[in-house]
Write a protein that binds this DNA or RNA. Structure first.
Length: 337
DNA sequence: AAACGTCCCAACCGCCCTCAC
DNA sequence: TGTGAGGGCGGTTGGGACGTT
Protein backbone atom coordinates (compact mmCIF):
# COMPACT_ATOMS: atom_id res chain seq x y z
CA UNK A 1 0.00 0.00 0.00
CA UNK A 2 2.79 2.47 -0.28
CA UNK A 3 3.98 4.32 2.72
CA UNK A 4 5.22 7.76 3.25
CA UNK A 5 8.90 7.78 4.05
CA UNK A 6 9.73 7.90 7.71
CA UNK A 7 11.70 11.08 7.17
CA UNK A 8 12.78 13.53 4.54
CA UNK A 9 15.70 11.70 3.11
CA UNK A 10 17.28 14.64 1.40
CA UNK A 11 17.74 16.40 4.69
CA UNK A 12 19.17 13.57 6.69
CA UNK A 13 22.66 12.29 7.21
CA UNK A 14 23.44 8.70 6.48
CA UNK A 15 26.26 6.40 7.24
CA UNK A 16 28.50 6.30 10.24
CA UNK A 17 27.58 8.37 13.24
CA UNK A 18 29.92 11.04 14.48
CA UNK A 19 30.86 11.51 18.10
CA UNK A 20 28.91 14.71 18.21
CA UNK A 21 25.77 13.04 16.93
CA UNK A 22 26.18 10.29 19.50
CA UNK A 23 26.51 12.82 22.26
CA UNK A 24 23.48 14.72 21.12
CA UNK A 25 21.43 11.56 21.04
CA UNK A 26 22.65 10.35 24.42
CA UNK A 27 22.06 13.70 26.03
CA UNK A 28 18.61 13.99 24.61
CA UNK A 29 17.55 10.54 25.74
CA UNK A 30 19.07 11.11 29.16
CA UNK A 31 16.93 14.18 29.51
CA UNK A 32 13.74 13.06 27.86
CA UNK A 33 13.89 9.32 27.68
CA UNK A 34 13.03 7.21 24.69
CA UNK A 35 9.95 8.70 23.23
CA UNK A 36 8.70 9.36 19.77
CA UNK A 37 11.52 8.42 17.47
CA UNK A 38 10.16 10.34 14.57
CA UNK A 39 10.21 13.62 16.34
CA UNK A 40 13.37 12.92 18.28
CA UNK A 41 15.91 13.91 15.64
CA UNK A 42 14.46 17.37 15.24
CA UNK A 43 14.09 17.85 18.96
CA UNK A 44 17.62 16.66 19.55
CA UNK A 45 19.05 18.71 16.74
CA UNK A 46 20.06 15.74 14.68
CA UNK A 47 19.91 15.48 10.94
CA UNK A 48 19.01 11.84 11.12
CA UNK A 49 16.08 9.65 10.41
CA UNK A 50 14.20 8.66 13.54
CA UNK A 51 14.67 5.03 12.77
CA UNK A 52 18.37 5.60 12.46
CA UNK A 53 18.40 7.23 15.89
CA UNK A 54 16.54 4.32 17.36
CA UNK A 55 18.92 1.82 15.84
CA UNK A 56 21.93 3.74 16.98
CA UNK A 57 20.63 3.95 20.51
CA UNK A 58 19.46 0.37 20.79
CA UNK A 59 22.41 -1.26 19.12
CA UNK A 60 25.25 0.91 20.21
CA UNK A 61 24.66 3.68 22.70
CA UNK A 62 22.41 2.07 25.28
CA UNK A 63 24.26 2.05 28.59
CA UNK A 64 23.33 -1.50 29.51
CA UNK A 65 24.97 -3.07 26.51
CA UNK A 66 27.52 -5.73 27.17
CA UNK A 67 30.64 -5.30 25.14
CA UNK A 68 33.20 -7.84 24.21
CA UNK A 69 33.29 -11.30 22.81
CA UNK A 70 30.59 -13.84 23.25
CA UNK A 71 31.36 -16.52 25.76
CA UNK A 72 31.13 -20.21 25.05
CA UNK A 73 28.04 -20.35 27.22
CA UNK A 74 26.43 -17.60 25.24
CA UNK A 75 27.28 -19.44 22.04
CA UNK A 76 25.52 -22.54 23.18
CA UNK A 77 22.57 -20.62 24.49
CA UNK A 78 22.20 -18.86 21.17
CA UNK A 79 22.39 -22.14 19.31
CA UNK A 80 19.75 -23.67 21.53
CA UNK A 81 17.49 -20.70 21.31
CA UNK A 82 17.91 -20.54 17.57
CA UNK A 83 16.91 -24.16 17.29
CA UNK A 84 13.77 -23.25 19.16
CA UNK A 85 12.96 -19.87 17.78
CA UNK A 86 14.55 -19.71 14.36
CA UNK A 87 15.75 -16.34 13.17
CA UNK A 88 13.83 -14.51 15.84
CA UNK A 89 16.80 -12.46 16.82
CA UNK A 90 14.92 -10.13 19.06
CA UNK A 91 13.51 -13.02 21.04
CA UNK A 92 16.92 -14.58 21.32
CA UNK A 93 18.40 -11.27 22.34
CA UNK A 94 15.78 -10.93 25.03
CA UNK A 95 17.38 -13.90 26.73
CA UNK A 96 20.89 -12.59 26.49
CA UNK A 97 21.06 -9.51 28.65
CA UNK A 98 23.27 -6.83 27.23
CA UNK A 99 23.23 -8.26 23.75
CA UNK A 100 21.26 -6.83 20.88
CA UNK A 101 19.39 -8.64 18.19
CA UNK A 102 21.64 -7.08 15.59
CA UNK A 103 24.74 -8.19 17.42
CA UNK A 104 23.47 -11.73 17.79
CA UNK A 105 22.38 -11.84 14.18
CA UNK A 106 25.81 -10.73 13.03
CA UNK A 107 27.50 -13.14 15.36
CA UNK A 108 25.34 -15.95 14.13
CA UNK A 109 26.14 -15.23 10.52
CA UNK A 110 29.85 -14.80 11.03
CA UNK A 111 30.72 -17.31 13.74
CA UNK A 112 28.08 -19.69 14.82
CA UNK A 113 27.08 -20.86 11.38
CA UNK A 114 30.66 -21.84 10.78
CA UNK A 115 30.84 -23.50 14.14
CA UNK A 116 27.77 -25.57 13.40
CA UNK A 117 29.03 -26.53 9.98
CA UNK A 118 32.22 -27.71 11.57
CA UNK A 119 30.12 -29.85 13.87
CA UNK A 120 28.32 -31.23 10.87
CA UNK A 121 25.09 -29.48 11.69
CA UNK A 122 23.02 -27.43 9.33
CA UNK A 123 22.59 -24.07 11.04
CA UNK A 124 19.20 -23.47 9.51
CA UNK A 125 17.58 -26.74 10.29
CA UNK A 126 19.80 -27.78 13.18
CA UNK A 127 19.94 -31.19 11.66
CA UNK A 128 23.04 -33.10 10.81
CA UNK A 129 24.24 -32.04 7.40
CA UNK A 130 24.01 -35.48 5.86
CA UNK A 131 20.47 -35.81 7.08
CA UNK A 132 19.58 -32.52 5.53
CA UNK A 133 20.62 -33.62 2.10
CA UNK A 134 17.14 -33.13 0.86
CA UNK A 135 17.53 -29.45 1.33
CA UNK A 136 19.41 -27.23 -1.06
CA UNK A 137 21.90 -26.10 1.53
CA UNK A 138 23.70 -29.28 2.12
CA UNK A 139 27.00 -30.17 0.57
CA UNK A 140 30.25 -29.55 2.23
CA UNK A 141 31.11 -27.06 4.84
CA UNK A 142 31.15 -23.81 3.02
CA UNK A 143 34.05 -21.52 3.15
CA UNK A 144 33.62 -18.61 5.45
CA UNK A 145 32.80 -16.37 2.60
CA UNK A 146 30.00 -18.60 1.52
CA UNK A 147 28.77 -19.17 4.99
CA UNK A 148 26.04 -16.77 4.17
CA UNK A 149 24.23 -19.64 2.67
CA UNK A 150 20.99 -19.05 0.96
CA UNK A 151 18.49 -19.48 3.63
CA UNK A 152 16.72 -22.70 3.26
CA UNK A 153 13.58 -21.01 4.01
CA UNK A 154 11.92 -23.47 5.92
CA UNK A 155 9.01 -21.76 7.32
CA UNK A 156 10.94 -21.27 10.47
CA UNK A 157 12.66 -18.46 8.78
CA UNK A 158 9.71 -16.62 7.61
CA UNK A 159 7.24 -15.01 9.86
CA UNK A 160 6.72 -17.93 12.05
CA UNK A 161 5.90 -16.98 15.49
CA UNK A 162 7.62 -19.15 17.90
CA UNK A 163 6.49 -16.69 20.46
CA UNK A 164 3.04 -17.82 19.91
CA UNK A 165 1.09 -20.62 21.36
CA UNK A 166 -1.30 -22.39 19.18
CA UNK A 167 -4.86 -23.02 19.42
CA UNK A 168 -5.95 -26.18 17.80
CA UNK A 169 -6.70 -24.63 14.49
CA UNK A 170 -3.44 -22.94 13.76
CA UNK A 171 -1.29 -23.93 10.88
CA UNK A 172 1.75 -25.76 12.00
CA UNK A 173 4.86 -24.90 10.13
CA UNK A 174 7.65 -25.62 12.47
CA UNK A 175 7.59 -27.10 15.87
CA UNK A 176 10.22 -27.69 18.45
CA UNK A 177 10.47 -30.08 21.31
CA UNK A 178 11.13 -28.26 24.47
CA UNK A 179 11.08 -29.87 27.81
CA UNK A 180 11.42 -27.73 30.82
CA UNK A 181 11.81 -29.69 33.97
CA UNK A 182 13.05 -28.77 37.33
CA UNK A 183 16.28 -29.80 38.79
CA UNK A 184 15.15 -31.86 41.70
CA UNK A 185 17.95 -31.01 43.99
CA UNK A 186 17.88 -27.40 43.38
CA UNK A 187 14.72 -25.57 43.86
CA UNK A 188 15.93 -22.85 41.60
CA UNK A 189 16.92 -25.08 38.81
CA UNK A 190 15.05 -25.64 35.64
CA UNK A 191 16.18 -27.50 32.63
CA UNK A 192 15.25 -26.79 29.11
CA UNK A 193 15.63 -29.74 26.84
CA UNK A 194 15.19 -29.49 23.16
CA UNK A 195 14.60 -32.19 20.68
CA UNK A 196 16.68 -30.81 17.92
CA UNK A 197 20.06 -31.65 16.56
CA UNK A 198 20.95 -31.15 20.13
CA UNK A 199 18.62 -33.80 21.28
CA UNK A 200 19.69 -34.56 24.73
CA UNK A 201 20.73 -31.01 24.79
CA UNK A 202 20.15 -29.87 28.27
CA UNK A 203 20.06 -26.22 28.84
CA UNK A 204 20.28 -25.68 32.49
CA UNK A 205 19.12 -22.32 33.48
CA UNK A 206 18.51 -20.32 36.52
CA UNK A 207 20.48 -22.18 39.11
CA UNK A 208 22.27 -20.48 41.91
CA UNK A 209 25.57 -21.56 40.51
CA UNK A 210 25.11 -19.85 37.25
CA UNK A 211 23.40 -16.86 38.60
CA UNK A 212 26.38 -14.68 37.99
CA UNK A 213 27.49 -16.10 34.75
CA UNK A 214 26.03 -15.44 31.40
CA UNK A 215 24.29 -18.76 31.41
CA UNK A 216 24.48 -22.27 32.67
CA UNK A 217 24.31 -24.24 29.56
CA UNK A 218 25.51 -27.70 29.05
CA UNK A 219 25.20 -29.33 25.72
CA UNK A 220 25.58 -32.93 24.91
CA UNK A 221 25.08 -33.62 21.30
CA UNK A 222 24.08 -37.04 20.38
CA UNK A 223 20.99 -37.83 18.45
CA UNK A 224 19.98 -36.29 15.25
CA UNK A 225 16.66 -34.71 15.69
CA UNK A 226 13.73 -35.45 13.52
CA UNK A 227 11.61 -32.44 13.29
CA UNK A 228 11.56 -29.29 15.21
CA UNK A 229 8.70 -29.50 17.58
CA UNK A 230 7.39 -27.08 20.06
CA UNK A 231 6.14 -29.56 22.53
CA UNK A 232 6.60 -27.86 25.80
CA UNK A 233 6.90 -29.86 28.90
CA UNK A 234 6.87 -27.48 31.72
CA UNK A 235 7.81 -28.22 35.23
CA UNK A 236 5.50 -26.51 37.58
CA UNK A 237 6.62 -24.79 40.68
CA UNK A 238 6.33 -26.98 43.71
CA UNK A 239 4.52 -24.44 45.72
CA UNK A 240 1.80 -23.68 43.39
CA UNK A 241 0.67 -20.22 42.79
CA UNK A 242 -2.60 -20.10 44.55
CA UNK A 243 -5.33 -17.75 43.64
CA UNK A 244 -4.52 -15.75 46.70
CA UNK A 245 -1.07 -14.93 45.52
CA UNK A 246 -0.74 -11.32 44.71
CA UNK A 247 1.63 -11.02 41.80
CA UNK A 248 2.21 -7.38 42.44
CA UNK A 249 3.28 -8.11 45.96
CA UNK A 250 5.51 -10.90 44.87
CA UNK A 251 7.02 -8.72 42.28
CA UNK A 252 7.78 -6.05 44.77
CA UNK A 253 9.26 -8.50 47.21
CA UNK A 254 11.37 -10.69 45.09
CA UNK A 255 12.53 -8.81 42.13
CA UNK A 256 11.87 -5.45 40.81
CA UNK A 257 14.52 -4.84 38.24
CA UNK A 258 13.46 -6.25 34.94
CA UNK A 259 10.27 -6.93 33.13
CA UNK A 260 9.05 -10.41 33.48
CA UNK A 261 6.05 -12.43 32.65
CA UNK A 262 4.29 -14.99 34.67
CA UNK A 263 1.83 -16.95 32.73
CA UNK A 264 -1.08 -18.55 34.33
CA UNK A 265 -2.26 -21.71 32.74
CA UNK A 266 -5.80 -22.79 32.56
CA UNK A 267 -7.05 -26.03 31.22
CA UNK A 268 -5.31 -29.09 32.43
CA UNK A 269 -3.23 -27.28 34.92
CA UNK A 270 -5.59 -24.74 36.16
CA UNK A 271 -4.30 -22.53 38.84
CA UNK A 272 -0.65 -23.27 38.51
CA UNK A 273 1.73 -20.55 37.63
CA UNK A 274 4.38 -21.14 35.09
CA UNK A 275 7.14 -18.69 34.68
CA UNK A 276 8.56 -19.14 31.26
CA UNK A 277 10.87 -16.22 31.06
CA UNK A 278 12.83 -17.65 33.90
CA UNK A 279 12.77 -21.15 32.61
CA UNK A 280 13.90 -20.08 29.22
CA UNK A 281 17.10 -18.61 30.37
CA UNK A 282 16.80 -15.21 31.87
CA UNK A 283 19.67 -14.36 34.05
CA UNK A 284 19.43 -14.09 37.74
CA UNK A 285 19.29 -10.38 37.78
CA UNK A 286 16.19 -10.52 35.75
CA UNK A 287 14.74 -13.73 36.95
CA UNK A 288 11.18 -13.38 37.81
CA UNK A 289 9.56 -13.69 41.12
CA UNK A 290 8.75 -17.32 40.83
CA UNK A 291 12.43 -18.03 41.12
CA UNK A 292 12.76 -20.30 44.02
CA UNK A 293 9.75 -22.31 43.21
CA UNK A 294 10.44 -25.91 42.72
CA UNK A 295 8.56 -28.11 40.37
CA UNK A 296 6.49 -31.09 41.11
CA UNK A 297 5.06 -32.09 37.86
CA UNK A 298 5.90 -32.06 34.25
CA UNK A 299 3.05 -30.96 32.14
CA UNK A 300 3.14 -30.97 28.42
CA UNK A 301 1.67 -28.15 26.49
CA UNK A 302 1.94 -28.01 22.80
CA UNK A 303 3.27 -24.84 21.36
CA UNK A 304 3.02 -24.53 17.69
CA UNK A 305 4.36 -21.90 15.42
CA UNK A 306 2.18 -20.59 12.75
CA UNK A 307 2.37 -18.40 9.75
CA UNK A 308 -1.30 -17.84 9.60
CA UNK A 309 -1.87 -15.99 12.78
CA UNK A 310 1.17 -14.00 13.50
CA UNK A 311 -0.56 -11.81 15.99
CA UNK A 312 -0.38 -14.20 18.85
CA UNK A 313 2.00 -12.97 21.45
CA UNK A 314 2.49 -15.11 24.43
CA UNK A 315 4.33 -17.92 26.07
CA UNK A 316 7.89 -17.05 25.43
CA UNK A 317 7.42 -13.36 25.59
CA UNK A 318 9.32 -11.34 28.06
CA UNK A 319 9.18 -7.65 28.48
CA UNK A 320 8.49 -6.23 25.12
CA UNK A 321 6.85 -9.36 23.91
CA UNK A 322 4.58 -9.79 26.80
CA UNK A 323 1.90 -7.74 25.23
CA UNK A 324 -1.43 -9.23 25.76
CA UNK A 325 -3.67 -9.67 22.83
CA UNK A 326 -7.07 -11.06 22.43
CA UNK A 327 -5.74 -14.14 20.77
CA UNK A 328 -4.22 -15.24 24.00
CA UNK A 329 -7.63 -16.36 24.96
CA UNK A 330 -7.25 -19.07 22.41
CA UNK A 331 -4.16 -20.18 24.13
CA UNK A 332 -5.78 -20.13 27.51
CA UNK A 333 -3.00 -18.11 28.87
CA UNK A 334 -3.19 -15.22 31.15
CA UNK A 335 -0.36 -12.95 31.87
CA UNK A 336 0.49 -11.56 35.22
CA UNK A 337 2.85 -8.77 35.97
C1' DA B 1 55.03 -0.99 0.98
C1' DA B 2 51.35 -1.86 -2.08
C1' DA B 3 47.72 -4.57 -3.87
C1' DC B 4 44.39 -7.71 -3.14
C1' DG B 5 41.16 -10.67 -0.67
C1' DT B 6 38.40 -11.71 3.30
C1' DC B 7 36.04 -10.76 7.46
C1' DC B 8 33.13 -8.27 10.38
C1' DC B 9 29.70 -5.19 11.96
C1' DA B 10 27.20 -0.78 11.95
C1' DA B 11 23.73 0.92 9.44
C1' DC B 12 20.16 0.86 6.06
C1' DC B 13 15.96 -0.91 3.73
C1' DG B 14 11.54 -2.53 3.33
C1' DC B 15 7.99 -5.13 5.23
C1' DC B 16 4.98 -6.28 9.09
C1' DC B 17 2.48 -5.38 13.40
C1' DT B 18 0.05 -2.55 16.60
C1' DC B 19 -2.64 1.08 17.85
C1' DA B 20 -5.30 5.24 17.58
C1' DC B 21 -8.78 7.43 15.26
C1' DT C 1 -14.20 -1.87 10.21
C1' DG C 2 -10.85 0.54 7.57
C1' DT C 3 -6.92 3.41 7.33
C1' DG C 4 -2.65 5.60 8.32
C1' DA C 5 1.20 6.61 11.46
C1' DG C 6 4.75 4.95 14.11
C1' DG C 7 7.63 1.47 15.87
C1' DG C 8 9.90 -2.94 15.44
C1' DC C 9 11.95 -6.67 13.07
C1' DG C 10 14.79 -9.53 9.90
C1' DG C 11 17.55 -9.41 5.81
C1' DT C 12 21.08 -7.16 3.35
C1' DT C 13 24.91 -4.17 2.29
C1' DG C 14 28.88 -0.89 2.39
C1' DG C 15 33.07 0.04 3.93
C1' DG C 16 36.70 -0.16 7.34
C1' DA C 17 39.90 -3.42 9.54
C1' DC C 18 42.79 -7.00 9.08
C1' DG C 19 45.46 -10.68 6.89
C1' DT C 20 48.00 -12.53 2.98
C1' DT C 21 50.79 -12.39 -1.01
Amino acid sequence: MGRSPCCEKEHTNKGAWTKEEDERLINYIKLHGEGCWRSLPKAAGLLRCGKSCRLRWINYLRPDLKRGNFTEDEDELIINLHSLLGNKWSLIAARLPGRTDNEIKNYWNTHIKRKLYSRGIDPQTHRPLNAASATPTTAAVPSPSTATVPVATSSSNKKINSDSISSSNTTTNTTHDVVITNNNNNSNGFQLVTNSAYANTTTKVGTDEDSNSSSGVTVEESFPHHQLNLDLSIGLPSHQVSSSVNPEKLKAEEHDQKPHVLYHWYGNITGQGVCLCYSLGLQSDQACYCKGMGATATTTTRVTTTATDSRKRCLVGSGAYGTKTGTEEEANIERFG
